[in-house]
Structure formats: C-alpha cells, structure tokens
Design a binder for these strands. Structure first.
Lengths: 328, 328
DNA sequence: GTGAAAGCGCTAACAA
DNA sequence: TTGTTAGCGCTTTCAC
C-alpha cells in the first residue's frame, strides 16, 4: 500500500495525497475527506524511510546515557520517553557503559541514524576527545543535556542546583550540632563536581571540620561503601554525619554505621526508590528529575519550532527529609 | 556528501561505491582501498533513510515494556541494548505505562517506524484486543518475548521457569517447618501467573495451609504492602513466612514484620538491587534476566539469518539466599 | 485546488 | 570487475 495506490483509488494525483498526509491547507475539504477515508479503509501507513528521505527526518530523538539500569537514568529515560511519545517523537537509545574508554562512538551511532536531536542524561562524556566530538556534533544537531553542562553553541542544559542543595544540607547538619561531616562520592560528573563543591563551600561557610580524610571517592558498590565506613570508624576518624553523592552509597553507609552501633544523620542524593527501601528510610536530596526532563522536552519542542531558548536552565534541589535525618 | 560525490572523486560509478559500502567481494582490492580512503577522508556517512528505502531496514529493533523506570525492565533494556549495539542494531523504545487502557498503539508506533523486529519485556499486553493486534503484527514482524508467552507463529519466547522456582521455595520453607506461607503479588502478568501457580502447587505438594486469606493481590507500593501485612497480623491471620512476587513488596513486607516485632523468612523475586538495600538483605528468586536477554538477542540474530529457532526457550530460576532466609 | 515531474541517496538487476 | 539504470515511496516545485 503506497501513496500511488491511495491516489489511484481516489482518482487524484500522489501530490494531493501527499498534501493531506502533510496537513496542507491547499486541498479542498471534499478531496481531503475522501482521501482520509480511503487511507483509513486501506489502513495505509506512509513509508517512514521514504518520508525520511524527503523530509530528512524520521522524528527520532537520540537519548544517551551511561547506563539505563541505573535507577536515576532509568527514571529520566522513562520520563523523557513518555513526554516525547505524546509529541509523536521516538526515542532511540544509546548507552555508553561506565568503562573508562572513548565514548564518542555512542554519539556517532545516533548521528548515523540521522536523529533530529540528542538528549544526554548525566555526564556520559568526560574525556577531552569525546567532548570535542560532542561540540562538533552540536554544530549540526541540537544537544540538550539533562544535569550536565558544556558551554557551546547549540548545546543546551537543564540542570539542578545541587551545589546549593548540598551546601544547604551541610548548614542544616551544622545547625543540628554536627561538626565533622563525612562525604562519600563515586564520580566526578558535572553533578558530582557540583555536589562536592557544595560540600566544601558548606564546610567553609559553617566553619566545620575540614579533615581531608572525610572526603572519600569510592566505587558505587554497597560492599565498598560499607567497608570504608567501617574502616574509618575502626581507625577512629571522627565524624558525626554522612552525606553521599548517591542513595546507594547512603544505603551502605547507613548499614555500616548501624552495624557499628552508631547513630548519626545520613543523607543521600537522587531521592530514589533505594532511599525508601533502606531502614530507616534515607533522607535524600531530590534533584527534581521530573522537572528537568519535562523542561528538556519542552526546550526541544521550542528548538524544533525555531523559537529562542535559553542555553541554561537551573532548578533548585529539594531536600526530602525522611527517617535518617533525625538520629544524632 | 553523497555516494555520487564519492564516486566522482574516485572515478568510479556509484554502483562500485555502493558495493564497497555493502561489503561486496566483487570489487578489486585496489578500487576498494581507494574508495575507502576517500570515504574516510571526506568523512562520508551513507544516508540511513535512503538506505532504509532500498533495503527496507534501518537496523532498528523496537523494544517494548511497561515502564523503563522499573528496575527489572531497566536492567533488561540495558542488557538488550548493549548486546544489540555490539551487533550494530539500534534500539527504539516504547513504553506503555501501567494504566489499564488499550496498548496496541505502543506497538503501532514501532511498526510505523518499520523496525526489523520487536522485543517485549514482561507482559505489556494483557487485554484481548491488544493480544489480537500483537498476533496480527507477528505475521509481518518477528516478535521475541522476554519472560512472557503467547502461542503464535513468529512469536518467540525466552522465559524463566519461575513456577518451579516458587514451588521449590515453598518446599524449602516447608522443610524449615513453615506451615502458613503468605503470598503477596501485584499483577497477573505471564510471570505473575507462573509464580502464583508455583505457590499453589507448592501448597498442595507440601500439604501446607491453604487459607485463601494468605494470597493477596496488592498494589506495587511500599505503603500498601506494609499496611496489608500489619493488618493481617493485627487480625491474627497466622503466617510464618512470606513470599512476594516482587522485591519491592518483600522490602515493605519485611519492614512491617519487623515493626510488629516478628521474625520469619521472607523471599522476594527478581533479585534486584532493592533486595540488597533492605536490612536484612532479602533472599530473592533470580529469574536469570541476563541469560534471558542474551538468549533473546541470540535468537533474534538467528531469525535474521533465517536459521531455525525454537519458539520457546526455558531457563531455570535460581534462589539467591541472603539474610532474610535464616530467620524463623 | 490539482497534477506532472524532478528529485532525495541509495540498492540491485542487468549489461558489458 | 565495473557501469548503467530502474526503482524504493515520498516531498515539493512549478505549471495549469
């Protein structure tokens, strides 16, 4: 079933059929109606490749992240996909994995498919070469980064002010009387850097213990985080509160602390389901992923309509206090 | 930069260029080399739409599930994407959501894009109309179901024998002396039905308490599961072990049980990260998702090569015993 | 408001 | 081994 068949059945030219297909107003109501009826009757579906050839678009958006199986990215993709779907856009997925290797190729895969735009979640690109390639891609395709930022033409960012969020938490903990806050993080993505910066700023601002042993970069693993917390306690490094860059780390930290029969406020980040599965439930900094993703799609829509859009949109983070904040 | 430009620069015809593009062996080494060199120099990339038009394929696989933000589906998509990526296939995503409404349209979206095949994860389609449409689609496009089963030509299933897995757990609990096992589940997907059947079979086989009040269908929500468990205890419905169809439910169940100061073995399903985040860590039935996804892609590859493949592949489930199994 | 026809960039059958 | 050419199914310009 092609446009020719429809045209023949309607006694019109393919041009006219094409016009109704593309919603042109230069078709008489009667003709349009007839054509639509036949299309429906024949269950006609335009060939997307042929359409793509002509329009140079198949209405596909490339979505790129490190790892969909991470609950944070998964949530983001879920939100983005559902928003895009409503607007008749399709999502084509590309995951780089967490290995430290060149990742430009994952962008390349999307470019090869001629996606209309690219949305990145988090910071899939960290190496200089990859970032150079990303900028190069941006010259042709709009790129929207959710929770990451690179200054360049045609790259747009929707981010959460996690720096201020963490700094604020430090302040709240200081107000509770905490002096030595342990900070555990697993990576220095854009978001990771913000949070670390917020922690450091907070230490200065509230005049807290700046012992460098209280800042630890570790693997994102329950075992590893439990081990380090226990070691620190064994070695009598004093701390009276914990902030982690990720809920999973907070889960492990809390478990270790309780096994060592200690009590202290513990705060994670992302406000994920993991924070609810821990006992007691973990207080967590919500980076407003829902808002970010919605705005990312919104921004994309505007870009496609050639409207002016800001290159950076920042939302505040929000502390979700749960059980793990009351212990001291 | 098109195939014509490359041809001109190489002083050959577009046919020859096309041949090297498609790895034909009917090109002299010298010509091939020259063409490849120019392609690289010009950074030529074939237009995927034009290619799609000719080959009727853009090497895209539609992946369909209810909800990527669910950790089980997220993991599956992650695995499938990475396997397909290695084979140069792209994933285009379609999520139906969990609302009870017609879902055929989400399949339709993929069909409209002329994907080469469809992989479903879990049971996105449950209503008769949707299943009819799915079967209809199968007449044109191969469909591979991960952890679901529909008998029909061109629909292939890769599943885990969760029925036997659950039945086995019931046996293990009986051996521990449990008499009344509470079973909590949230949905009757294919997998959900298998597990429930396994539970029931187990009750019969091991001659356990068949009180229907011990089988509860509930929402997938921590709050709801906690509520029901507490209510049952309050109402003095006796049970001395819990099995849930999902780790999340087990997390909530365990929390409720402990809050009521009871101890009993608790077992979840999916062996997800959630089971590790709970304290104590939850024993869980692993449905071998990694194996299923790998086999699904493997099967797909064979289908694309017109090799014979079985319509149903079954792997055994595996009980991962963690802390929550030792209490009694 | 409608039609004829020229692309879009590629594949593949057929010729040479 | 290579080239010529006719599609693939659609969009769009230009006439009418």
């Amino acid at each position: 079933m092609t446009i020719y068949d429809i045209a023949k059945k309607c006694d019109v030219s393919i041009a006219t059929v094409s016009r109704v297909l593309n919603g042109s107003d230069k078709v008489s109501a009667k003709t349009k109606e007839k054509i639509l009826a036949v299309m429906k009757e024949q269950n006609y579906q335009p060939n997307p490749f042929a359409r793509g050839l002509g329009l140079n678009s198949m209405k596909m958006i490339g979505v790129l992240c490190e790892d969909v199986s991470d609950s944070f990215y998964a949530k983001a993709i879920s939100l983005i996909e559902s928003h895009l779907r409503k607007l008749d856009w399709n999502v084509i997925l590309s995951c780089t994995g967490r290995e430290h290797e060149p990742k430009a190729k994952y962008l390349q895969f999307l470019i090869e498919k001629h996606v209309d735009a690219i949305i990145t979640i988090g910071t899939p690109f960290n190496q200089a070469k990859d970032i150079t390639y990303l900028k190069c891609v941006a010259n042709k395709n709009p790129i929207i980064m959710v929770n990451s930022y690179i200054k360049h033409d045609n790259i747009y960012s929707v981010i959460c002010n996690e720096e201020a969020g963490i700094e604020d938490i430090v302040g709240k903990l200081a107000a509770k009387g905490c002096q030595s806050i342990l900070y555990l993080y697993d990576s220095l993505t854009y978001s990771g850097k913000q949070k670390l910066a917020g922690y450091k700023k907070g230490l200065v601002k509230y005049n807290l213990d700046a012992n460098p042993l209280l800042q630890n970069k570790i693997n994102r693993s329950l075992d590893d985080v439990e081990k380090i917390v226990k070691t620190l306690i064994d070695e009598e490094i004093y701390f009276d509160a914990i902030i982690t860059s990720e809920d999973l780390l907070a889960v492990g930290a809390q478990r270790a602390v309780r096994q060592m029969e200690r009590h202290m406020p513990i705060v994670g980040c992302n406000n994920s389901i993991l924070s609810q599965c821990a006992t007691p439930m973990l207080t967590s900094l919500d980076n407003q992923l829902g808002t970010l993703c919605k705005e990312a799609v919104n921004l994309l829509t505007k870009l496609m309509n050639n409207e002016e859009v800001p290159s950076k949109i920042i939302f505040p983070a929000k502390l979700i206090q749960k059980e793990s904040f009351v212990y001291l």
